[in-house]
Amino acid sequence: MSERLLTYLYQYGVGGLVFFGSLLLLWRRGMLGGQSAERRRWVLLLLLGMVAYAAVQGVLQFVGPLYDLDLGGVW
């Protein structure tokens, strides 16, 4: 396993345990908000936030090192 993959898996493996474990615990204890529609919106936002962080760091981690940048005269 490459070092780049190892660090990424560690970040989102252990971090994911905290994140999804927290969601599960809070859901089981009825702490995820009152109204169901509002609860769904918050859970969706939390998940989208996690995906956004994972995507940005994933691109920089795996794609960034491989390619030089050529904007082809844009800007």
Partner: peptide, 14 residues
């Protein structure tokens, strides 16, 4: 700076 999000469920709802 970029590894705080995993704690947000516990912070916001706990």
């Amino acid at each position: 700076y970029l590894n705080d999000w995993v704690w947000m469920p516990l912070f916001m709802f706990g």
